[in-house]
Amino acid sequence: MFEARLVQSSILKKVLEAIKELLNEATFDCSDSGIQLQAMDNSHVSLVSLNLRSDGFDKYRCDRNLSMGINLASMSKIMKCAGNDDVLTMKAQDNADLVTFMFESQNQEKVMDYEMKLMNLDQEHLGIPETDYSCVIKLPSQEFARIVRDLSQFGESVVISCTKEGIKFSAGGDIGNANIKLAQTSNVDKDEDAVTIEMQEPVSLTFACRYLNSFAKATPLSPQVQLSMSADVPLVVEYKIGDIGHIRYYLAPKIED
């Protein structure tokens, strides 16, 4: 028996918005420790890794490990039926081919049950090596979304360069060139407005804009985003999900041919 209750169903709605542009389907691995998802996009350029810890749920029970193969477009249709203030409960029997999403209004006067068929998906998990990143940058998530959106107008790629002085995003193409520099903030009223840089060595890497734009769909999950970079390895873009977990996107760089 698997049962997970979340008073704020809006969290799962936002998680789905954050992954459904990159992934058509994915396996939700449920265990005693929580719900995990790891999947590559169709082109195998990026990897999504989601972790929702069991202690972050309002109620959580998972007697046996369960892998739920889910069509994300179908799940998205169901999640759209939930009000932001509804209480969500996901339920599945052991070895089930169905998962039930139950939404209850706050006053419990309306109860909705949606059953969704599960799929058998080939499970392919990648091992992600522990890495000490040369640069770890934290910045407001809305700022990051704005920058990648703005630079996408100039070209398919963006160069992200980090030095002690700051972080620079650059793009160029037919219409010209664009550079956006952010310096580390010295003092801000709110922590979420801060730009912080921890740098061991300067790094400059090139990435495809379209993936960064897809990652930015996670913006509503967190006021801050963390970028981790080292030479010649994938970028990590991480959004914390309240007290319950995180979503990480790994993006392979563009390298000289």
Binding site: M40, S46, L126, G127, P234, K254
Partner: peptide
């Protein structure tokens, strides 16, 4: 010219 790398060339299958 830059070429897009694949994520599988950095992370190996478990």
């Amino acid at each position: 010219k830059n070429k897009q790398a694949s994520i599988t060339s950095f992370f190996t299958k478990k």
